[in-house]
């Protein structure tokens, strides 16, 4: 239970993928204009991040490492992610057209999302990861949990920012600050808030 809580705190708050680790900034800036978009993207990313961890971790640990093919890791991971995204898109399209309407348009964007490849690369660094969440050894279960809650952290951050942006669009500010700069400042203030979680644990 303690470990479970630790993973939640670490992945969602203290090491938030967007605001602390800077992974997945492109959709964070691009899709945070409306709350509905932000939520759709968040759910899609969480789904893919969880399944990515479930697949890449065993591939690396039980195939690449024993065969001494660690150097192929980047190529293998990016293709696993691309294939996975394509597959999920087809499955959702087939079985739930309503869901596809909701999040289908975000799926193709996820292949080039830093957060997904980032989480795959992070969980295979076993020593650092085990240290972070305070377990003796990394396992498939922990890495999937970390992937899932990392995605939750992503969703929380992007939804919070979309709420802020709905307000900042109507602010009376200099023209050169409009758009990206004011969004960055909003993100800066959010990051300060998340900084507090570093003192937990």
């Amino acid at each position: 239970m303690g470990t479970f809580l630790m993973i939640i705190i670490m992945a969602v708050f203290a090491n938030n993928f967007i605001l602390v680790q800077f992974l997945g900034i492109c959709p964070f800036l691009g899709l945070s204009k409306s709350r509905a978009n932000a939520f759709g993207m968040g759910v899609a990313v969480t789904l893919i991040m969880t399944i990515t961890c479930l697949i890449t971790y065993p591939i690396y640990m039980y195939i690449l490492v024993p065969l001494k093919l660690e150097y192929l890791e980047i190529i293998v991971f990016i293709f696993v992610i691309a294939a996975l995204v394509q597959m999920i898109e087809n499955i959702i399209k087939r079985f739930s057209p309503a869901l596809y309407k909701g999040m289908g348009i975000y799926l193709p964007l996820i292949t080039t999302n830093c957060a997904v490849l980032g989480v795959a690369e992070l969980v295979i660094d076993s020593a650092a990861m085990a240290n972070l969440i305070g377990v003796p050894q990394m396992s498939l279960g922990y890495s999937v949990l970390y992937g899932f809650f990392g995605g939750v952290g992503f969703t929380v951050a992007i939804i919070l920012l979309s709420g802020l942006r709905e307000k900042t669009d109507y602010l009376d500010i200099p023209k050169s600050l409009k758009g990206f700069p004011i969004t960055m400042v909003a993100a800066c203030i959010m990051a300060m808030g998340f900084y507090v979680f570093n003192f937990i644990g």
């Binding site: 630790m6 020593a127 240290n131 305070g134 377990v135 003796p136 644990g201």
Partner: peptide
């Protein structure tokens, strides 16, 4: 160098 289970390092 390294540690085991020491979460408060």
């Amino acid at each position: 160098a390294s540690n085991e289970k020491q979460t408060l390092m």
